[in-house]
Simulated scan of single mutants.
Amino acid sequence: MFSEHFKVRFYETDGLAHVSNTVVAGWFECGREPIFKMFTPDLDLQNWPLILASYKIDFHLQIYYGKSVEVRTYVSRVGNSSFDTYQEIWQQDQKVASGTTTLVRFDFESNKSVPIDGTIKSQLEEHLYPQQEA
């Protein structure tokens, strides 16, 4: 598991006095940065090997300004050329949101998915969501 803490900023709140639902997707992306570094250690955008295929976010409770959040990032599935991350946002010891994102290793020159190499697969599997472990 990877863990990242964020201070909820005032501008992330909406007219209903809680964090806007659009902010969560950005927090999740920041939480995936350690996974991005497995594929591109220097995060060189000219040599980027991943595309986002899909994501789904579930909101469990409202998220509030003035209280920090923790983003927990796991790997929930590793396939041949794609993998899923499962992420949770926690605030004040409560899970307030969760989501799953599918990422694909991609060759932009050939415009096709390509297999994830064995070393990276092993690194991804070190971060499997606990319920996914054998």
Rank of each mutant, 00 (worst) to 15 (best):
residue 119 T to R: 07
residue 98 S to N: 13
residue 113 S to W: 03
residue 118 G to I: 11
residue 108 F to Q: 09
residue 78 V to L: 08
residue 82 S to A: 13
residue 78 V to A: 09
residue 88 E to C: 11
residue 128 L to I: 04
residue 129 Y to M: 12
residue 91 Q to Y: 06
residue 116 I to Q: 00
residue 86 Y to K: 07
residue 92 Q to A: 15
residue 127 H to I: 01
residue 74 Y to R: 02
residue 107 D to P: 15
residue 122 S to C: 07
residue 105 R to W: 05
residue 89 I to C: 14
residue 121 K to C: 15
residue 129 Y to G: 03
residue 99 G to V: 02
residue 82 S to N: 07
residue 74 Y to N: 10
residue 113 S to I: 04
residue 83 F to W: 05
residue 118 G to L: 12
residue 127 H to G: 07
residue 75 V to E: 05
residue 74 Y to I: 02
residue 90 W to K: 08
residue 91 Q to K: 10
residue 106 F to A: 03
residue 99 G to E: 12
residue 86 Y to F: 15
residue 104 V to S: 08
residue 112 K to I: 05
residue 95 K to Y: 04
residue 99 G to I: 01
residue 100 T to S: 11
residue 95 K to F: 02
residue 99 G to D: 11
residue 109 E to V: 10
residue 89 I to F: 06
residue 127 H to M: 01
residue 128 L to D: 01
residue 128 L to T: 00
residue 82 S to C: 07
residue 86 Y to Q: 12
residue 107 D to Y: 06
residue 103 L to D: 06
residue 87 Q to L: 13
residue 127 H to T: 02
residue 127 H to W: 05
residue 111 N to W: 02
residue 102 T to D: 11
residue 77 R to V: 08
residue 86 Y to H: 13
residue 110 S to Y: 03
residue 78 V to C: 09
residue 126 E to H: 11
residue 123 Q to M: 12
residue 124 L to K: 01
residue 91 Q to H: 08
residue 83 F to Q: 04
residue 86 Y to L: 14
residue 76 S to N: 12
residue 120 I to Q: 01
residue 119 T to M: 08
residue 91 Q to S: 14
residue 125 E to G: 04
residue 121 K to W: 05
residue 105 R to F: 07
residue 104 V to Y: 02
residue 120 I to Y: 00
residue 112 K to Y: 02
residue 94 Q to F: 10
residue 96 V to G: 01
residue 79 G to N: 06
residue 101 T to W: 01
residue 126 E to R: 12
residue 74 Y to L: 06
residue 90 W to C: 13
residue 93 D to Y: 07
residue 80 N to V: 09
residue 82 S to W: 03
residue 104 V to A: 12
residue 96 V to A: 15
residue 88 E to S: 12
residue 124 L to F: 05
residue 104 V to D: 10
residue 107 D to G: 10
residue 98 S to R: 03
residue 99 G to M: 10
residue 107 D to C: 14
residue 77 R to C: 09
residue 78 V to H: 04
residue 81 S to H: 04
residue 129 Y to R: 03
residue 84 D to F: 00
residue 76 S to G: 11
residue 110 S to F: 02
residue 75 V to W: 01
residue 111 N to E: 15
residue 81 S to N: 10
residue 92 Q to R: 08
residue 88 E to K: 10
residue 111 N to F: 07
residue 121 K to N: 08
residue 92 Q to P: 09
residue 124 L to Y: 03
